[in-house]
Simulated assay, not measured.
Amino acid sequence: MDHDELAAAGLPSLKNAQLRHMRQLFLTVVTAGFVVLVPWIVYLALELPDHHPENAWNAAWVGFDSLLLLGLLATCWGAWRRRQYTVIACVFTATLLLCDAWFDISLDWGTPDETASVLSAVFVEIPLAFYLFFAAMRIVRMTVRSALMLAGHPGPVPQFHKLSIGGLNELLKSVDARREQP
């Protein structure tokens, strides 16, 4: 099917201005997150205290943020390449962002850095995490919708939270069963 046939069938197409805009916004957000995190990791590596009871403070934070950087890189790469594994990268990165917010706030509570940690969590890490979770869910929903439409499923796409893990297979079997009925 070409792009016009996909659009006529109701399938997602990047010729759709809204989808193009949503994709561009997503690419901008995850790419910016990746770019901003690089100098932050360098800053942490240079400025975190060398003294800690475990002598691992630097390694813990720089290592964690490096892992977050890899998550953002995987998310960026997958989104730019239009790969399905972007869903996994989004969930992975969003989870790390929530963990980062939690640890920043808990470890900075009662210190001069408390306000910066809370503001960072509230205005950057938590919103970006929820945005990535939402993007992952939307990609899965669009994939299911495309598969169902290509298979000839006549009805609406089931709500995401009601679709079982094998739900797509079940729906496709029901489409096949309807086709076989005289």
Rank of each mutant, 00 (worst) to 15 (best):
A101M: 05
F34I: 02
H51C: 07
T86I: 01
T143L: 03
R145P: 00
F134W: 15
L98K: 04
L6S: 08
P158M: 02
S164H: 04
V62L: 08
L46Q: 01
S164W: 03
V91L: 14
W102L: 13
E170L: 10
D108F: 05
V144R: 05
I88Y: 11
A9S: 06
E54T: 11
V35H: 02
P53I: 12
L68G: 10
E170M: 04
A74D: 13
W57P: 00
H153C: 09
V62D: 03
R81T: 01
F134T: 15
L44P: 04
D65G: 02
R179V: 04
P112S: 13
I139K: 00
L11E: 12
V42D: 01
S66G: 15
T115F: 13
P112H: 08
N16C: 11
L171I: 08
S13R: 07
L48S: 06
P154K: 14
V38R: 00
D108K: 05
L48Y: 04
V175Y: 04
A79N: 05
Q159W: 12
R23A: 12
R82K: 12
A60P: 00
L19I: 06
N58H: 07
I105R: 11
G33D: 12
F34R: 07
W102Y: 15
M22S: 09
T93L: 02
N169L: 10
H153S: 11
K173T: 07
A56R: 15
E47P: 01
Y43V: 11
L27A: 15
V144L: 03
S174L: 07
F26S: 11
L68C: 09
T28F: 08
H161I: 15
R81M: 05
M22D: 11
F34G: 05
P39S: 04
Q181M: 01
A129W: 09
I139A: 06
H3G: 03
D108A: 12
G110R: 10
L97C: 02
H51V: 15
W77V: 14
V30F: 14
L172Y: 02
G152M: 04
A59E: 06
Y131P: 09
V87N: 03
L19F: 08
S164K: 06
V175T: 14
F123H: 07
D113G: 10
W57A: 13
A74K: 11
L163T: 13
H52R: 03
S146E: 12
Q18C: 00
T111R: 14
A56Y: 13
I165P: 01
S13P: 06
A116H: 08
M149Y: 03
T93D: 05
